[in-house]
Design a protein around this nucleic acid. Structure first.
Length: 345
DNA sequence: AAGAGGAGCAACCGCGATTGA
DNA sequence: GTCAATCGCGGTTGCTCCTCT
């Protein structure tokens, strides 16, 4: 399939944008919305193809873009999400407010990838190069299998969530500033809008984090740590042979409204993300490890608040959150811990 | 001071997915 | 159901600036 490049037409300008072109594009979109990118350049008086205009707007001119250095929190989040999602930059970007996929991709390729490589970590597998050869060094194959399933499941889940975020952000275009016409919503988007109500981005991440916190509190208080086998209400996720964390986790999981509704929405929307396969979780370490990998970047007993605050933004002043200095000090330790985690599986 | 090489990043390209006639 | 147009994503390129020799 595919199609010929949209910039084949002669006379269209290419290369770096001039400030005048930026201003034209900005003015036009602020007045009329972008509508069809294909027809925008002509209407805006630009000698560019629509694709080039779209790219310039999305990656540079859009007002809600944060530019400049990536904070340590953002770097950590990128590494963790990349471990789960791979090179799905748009999915990763949806979890980093105000950052574009292109910017994250560039940052990964120019900074993080190199640093990981220098530390002997394979950037694609997030494991030490030596250990990347497999679990031959004593790891329990069952555990490896379980975690692989979990990783696949989690990856799909995050991707589905990213899609929701994208759709929600599309919908927000129709909740735009007065005076801005904006594009006409498609039938499908209208349907999604009626189903979703307000955008519910990052609910799952926050919910998972709360579940983890709650389960640890219960554990610490010596509460019931029974061994009931419980099935996830909406998925084929089975918490088996899990004496402590599984029951408490699942109980919290089930009672967590935000997580529940978000999951239901995902199943409603995509289905596959939640039901992509049976995920047998062998023991509590698996869950703990995985959650810590996702939110803390390490398998340790101390609980560290998520990278994301309650607004879904980076940075937080909540109790329990490391200060920026502490985080700086621990940053590379966390990376090494992350590697250790990978090593353990 | 000047050239070489490297790093960073904006922009382009090709392709799959989606949309709508 | 089909197909052309369009969108959006990920990989790649190439330009600019910086550092080193």
């Amino acid at each position: 399939m595919g199609r010929s490049p949209c910039c084949d037409a002669t006379g269209l300008k290419r290369g770096p944008w001039t400030p005048e072109e930026d201003q034209k594009l900005l003015d036009f979109i602020q007045k009329h919305g972008h509508g069809s990118w294909r027809s925008l350049p002509e209407k805006a008086g630009l000698q560019r193809c629509g694709k080039s205009c779209r790219l310039r707007w999305i990656n540079y001119l859009r007002p809600d873009i944060k530019r400049g250095n990536f904070s340590l929190r953002e770097q950590k989040t990128i590494i963790q999400l990349h471990a789960l999602l791979g090179n799905r930059w748009s999915a990763i970007a949806s979890h980093l407010p105000k950052r574009t996929d292109n910017e994250i991709k560039n940052y990964w390729n120019t900074h993080i990838k190199k640093r990981l490589a220098m530390m002997g970590i394979d950037p694609s597998t997030h494991k030490p190069v030596v250990a990347a050869l497999g679990s031959a060094n004593g790891a329990d194959p069952k555990k490896v299998s379980n975690l692989t399933h979990m990783a696949q499941w989690e990856s799909a889940r995050l991707e589905a969530e990213a899609r929701l975020v994208r759709e929600s952000s599309k919908l927000r275009q129709y909740d735009h500033q007065p005076g801005l016409p904006g594009p006409v919503p498609t039938l499908q988007l209208k349907k999604i809008a009626s189903r979703l109500g307000a955008p519910r981005c990052l609910d799952i991440l926050k919910a998972w984090q709360r579940v983890q916190l709650e389960s640890m509190v219960i554990d610490n208080n010596g509460f019931d740590q029974g061994s009931n086998n419980l099935d996830s209400p909406t998925s084929t996720l089975n918490f088996l042979q899990n004496p402590r964390a599984s029951s408490t986790n699942i109980a919290s999981f089930q009672s967590n409204e935000a997580l529940f509704t978000a999951c239901q929405d995902m199943e409603f929307e995509g289905g596959e993300a939640w039901n992509m396969g049976t995920c047998n979780i062998g023991d509590e370490d698996s869950i703990k490890w995985f959650s810590n990998l996702l939110f803390n970047g390490c398998e340790s007993d101390h609980f560290v608040q998520s990278n994301l605050d309650n607004d879904g933004n980076n940075g937080s002043n909540d109790a329990g959150v490391l200060s920026e200095d502490d985080e700086h000090n621990n940053y590379w330790d966390d990376i090494f811990d992350l590697v250790d985690c990978g090593h353990n599986i």
